[in-house]
């Protein structure tokens, strides 16, 4: 097996007129890895994904996928990747099954092979009973699963997922995560974008945090949390509108604190101990919650803003 990374980006830039969507990022993704781009809307994640998917030319910098250049070998690269775009882009004029079969034909697969894979993939995404349904009556979660099945029809080495679970209800998200986890186990390299912390923590071995077209941090979810946050977080809620003025009451407790419009966050190794000290100082928040630190905290720390607005 080759040791060349599947994706190498150096100083990758994407500009739309005077707007810079991706502002010189360096990324390497290795075979079998599950890699995430984490960031809020407008961070440049989708633009990066489209460049990797060879459907958007780069403005500047270097980009190689399977050690090929998307600018000149886009067709060969696209033949080996699977894409789950943000808006499913299913063919609404066709049935579920025909969507998969026709997609296989775009990759020049023989018809019989398309039929076999379509049946197998519908089984995989648990939609066999909807094979002859049109796309329109399907739920959001089902459409997403059809899109994932479609992206796998050419047995891709690299799967690109742009916000795979945005807009889905919790149950649908878990079904999807389970399927993606199985793909990961089969050795498919996953690259996904998300603005959900839990998703990144569940699915990514390694991720980069993007903000304003730049990478602000890189590492495994665990190492990022260790590096940029504390083990635990104490969340205090004071009556609406008074969080700001109560903050000084608890100043100095834990390693540091963050005052948000709706709550005060205290970063501490031991959340319970921090809460005990809050009470000892006579401060009475309406509610208090001790939780483990998450990527959300990392993002807040790195950019001063919360992730989902």
């Amino acid at each position: 097996m080759s040791t060349t990374p599947l994706i190498v980006a150096r100083g990758l830039v994407k500009r739309f007129g005077s707007f810079t969507a991706v502002d010189g990022i360096d990324v390497e993704v290795h075979r079998g890895e599950s890699f995430g781009f984490l960031g809020p809307n407008g961070a440049g994640k989708s633009s990066t994904m489209r460049m990797i998917g060879c459907v958007s030319p780069r403005t500047d910098g270097e980009l190689r996928i399977f050690d090929m250049d998307p600018a000149t070998q886009g067709k060969q690269i696209r033949a080996r990747i699977g894409v789950v775009p943000q808006a499913d882009q299913l063919d609404e004029q066709l049935t579920v099954q025909d969507n998969l079969m026709l997609y296989g034909r775009y990759f020049d697969l023989p018809r019989a092979e398309c039929r076999r894979r379509a049946a197998e993939l519908l089984e995989f995404v648990q939609l066999t009973d909807r094979a002859t349904s049109k796309i329109e009556p399907l739920s959001g979660g089902m459409k997403r699963r059809v899109t994932i099945a479609r992206s796998l029809v050419n047995e891709p080495e690299l799967l690109l997922l742009d916000e795979p679970t945005t807009g889905l209800d919790p149950q649908a998200r878990h079904v999807l995560w389970d399927r993606l986890y199985r793909l990961k186990q089969r050795g498919v390299t996953l690259v996904l974008t998300t603005h959900y912390m839990d998703e990144a923590e569940q699915l990514c071995d390694r991720l980069v945090v993007m903000d304003g077209g730049r990478i602000v941090a890189e590492g495994s979810p665990r190492s990022l949390i260790e590096q940029h946050s504390t083990r635990e977080v104490l969340e205090l809620r004071y009556p609406a509108g008074t969080n700001e003025e109560r903050a000084p009451d608890v100043a100095g407790i834990g390693d540091r604190s963050e005052v948000l419009p709706d709550r005060v966050l205290i970063y501490a190794h031991d959340g319970e101990a921090a809460l005990a000290e809050v009470h000892a100082r006579g401060s009475r928040p309406e509610s208090a919650l001790v939780r483990r630190s998450s990527l959300e905290d990392v993002f807040l720390r790195l950019t001063g803003r919360s992730l989902v607005d």
Partner: peptide
């Protein structure tokens, strides 16, 4: 409206 071609162009089709 249907964005039929977006998904087509993600394959070896041009």
């Amino acid at each position: 409206y249907e964005k039929t071609y977006d998904a087509v162009l993600a394959t070896p089709m041009t």
